Amino acid sequence: MTGRQGPAVLPSALRGWLGPIAVLAALVVLVLGAAYADDSEPGAADARIWAAVDGVGPPWRHVALATDFLGEPVGAVLLVGALVTGCLVLRHPRAAVFLVTGTGLSVGTTTLLKPVAGRTIHGDNLSYPSGHTAFLTAVALMVTLLAAGRLGLGRAVGTAFVLAAGLVAGAAMGWAQVTLGSHYATDTLGGWCTALAVLPVSAWLVDRTADRLADRATAGRPADEPADRRAGAGRPERR
């Protein structure tokens, strides 16, 4: 018997599929990074997508700016803070730790990869992979992972649910970044795949750490008294 406190943030039913997906996503990040390393020009696909969304006006530009704000420091803190508060209100501290850890590792990974890839846009601005896209994708993946666990979704349905939410969030932020000229389309694909690669690992680390801490706390407690001793407690001693 373990001392686990609260449900796991990575449902056991989803582990079998999310692991290989994370490995595949990491490979995509590496391949795209190598293909566009030290580049400062859009690829053929980037150019076509950029031409299709360039010059968008109101109200869609306002939508793009609002979406972009969610990935900015202030917007990101407000969004994560609201979600963490909700987890604490629901008495799920492990989920709160997961939200902070998952977003931090996702954005931190893109920050570390940018100087390695060396791809730039608008001068010397490092662009690959997109941190904004990684952030919003990570948030969507984490929220749906927690929901899938609470709802008890099976492997196929749960995985489809999580990936669909991540795809929608990543596509929305990716569109905003390309529309605003902040990233190439392949930068946003790299950010999306970064979140897919990092989140299952983050969830596993949070669960493993929380379970170990709970087990240590349980092991440090004194063992319960035998039942016959508890039953006799308070009775006067017979002579």
Rank of each mutant, 00 (worst) to 15 (best):
S182H: 12
S106Y: 10
A156E: 10
A147I: 10
Q177H: 11
G75L: 01
E72N: 14
V143I: 15
D68L: 05
A169Q: 04
V157R: 10
G149T: 04
V97K: 01
P129M: 15
A148R: 00
L163V: 14
S130T: 03
C193Y: 08
V116F: 09
A165H: 07
R91T: 01
V97D: 00
C87W: 00
Y128H: 08
A160P: 05
G152M: 08
W192K: 07
F135K: 12
E72C: 09
L126Q: 15
A147T: 10
G86S: 02
G190V: 12
L189W: 04
A148M: 11
G131Q: 02
T159C: 14
T179H: 11
L83P: 07
G75N: 03
A185D: 13
L167M: 14
T137Q: 05
L151V: 11
R91E: 12
G104W: 00
V77C: 10
T133F: 05
G149Q: 03
A117Q: 11
I121P: 07
A164C: 08
V80G: 01
N125H: 15
L88H: 14
S127Q: 03
D68A: 10
T109P: 04
P93Y: 01
T120M: 12
M173I: 14
V89E: 02
V139L: 09
M142P: 10
L83F: 12
A82Q: 03
L189Q: 00
A164D: 07
S127E: 05
A169R: 06
V157A: 12
A140L: 10
L151T: 14
A185R: 13
A160N: 08
V157N: 13
H183C: 08
G166Y: 01
G108D: 06
V162L: 09
V89Q: 08
L145I: 07
G86W: 00
H132S: 06
L136H: 05
I121S: 08
V84C: 03
L70C: 10
V162I: 10
A95M: 05
D68T: 11
L112Q: 11
T101D: 06
G158I: 01
L126M: 13
L88G: 08
A195S: 06
A96E: 00
A160D: 12
V89I: 09
T144G: 00
L112D: 10
G71K: 03
G166I: 00
V89H: 15
C193Q: 08
L70E: 00
G123V: 06
G131F: 03
H183Q: 12
T103A: 09
G170A: 04
